[in-house]
């Protein structure tokens, strides 16, 4: 699965200023709404579901990366977005470090395979130091979109 299969340019956020876990999650879900990927009356429910998932254990998996996510019955296909913070956000990460790169996923409850393949793609790309560095340095949503496109074209990893 490629980034283009579940991410759209309209929901990408560069230079997010949110400074808490809830704030950054809320801003990203709001961006999904702005891009027409979720319904307005589902926003609160999706934010709450993602925060509830975080209570089971942070999705901040180290290396300055977090993948907040949830299953939600209001979506009929996997939707996601990416955000970059220049300052970093305390996210209760496994390694205790701040998070700079966020990949948020909302998937239909009956499609665990799609969620797994999206996670596979995200984590495979994030294993590449160059991809991570360029992403952290991104100044605009267009920069981020370009990096995701390049990743989709296998320009960062050979696996």
């Amino acid at each position: 699965m490629k980034f283009a299969d579940f991410m759209t340019r309209e929901s990408i956020l560069a230079g997010v200023t949110a400074d808490s876990k809830e704030a950054v999650i809320r801003e990203m879900v709001q961006a999904l709404l702005g891009a027409g990927r979720i319904e307005a009356d589902e926003l609160e429910s999706i934010v709450k579901a993602i925060l509830k998932r975080e209570e089971l254990g942070s999705t901040g998996i180290g290396r300055g990366v977090a993948v907040p996510h949830t299953k939600h019955p209001s979506v009929d296909r996997l939707v996601g977005t990416v955000a970059v913070s220049n300052e970093g956000v305390d996210f209760d990460s496994l390694d205790g470090e701040k998070v700079y790169l966020f990949f948020l996923l909302v998937s239909p409850p009956d499609r665990p395979g799609d969620h797994l393949r999206a996670l596979e793609n995200i984590s495979r790309q994030l294993r590449d130091d160059t991809f991570c560095r360029f992403l952290k340095q991104s100044k605009s949503a267009d920069d981020i979109q370009q990096l995701l496109d390049e990743a989709d074209n296998n320009q960062f990893v050979s696996q």
Binding site: I61, V65, P112, G113, L116, L119, E120, S123, R127
Partner: peptide, 12 residues
Amino acid sequence: SVLQMVSLGIPE
């Protein structure tokens, strides 16, 4: 390594 394991994309 969470990142390495998840990148294998291991399904049921």
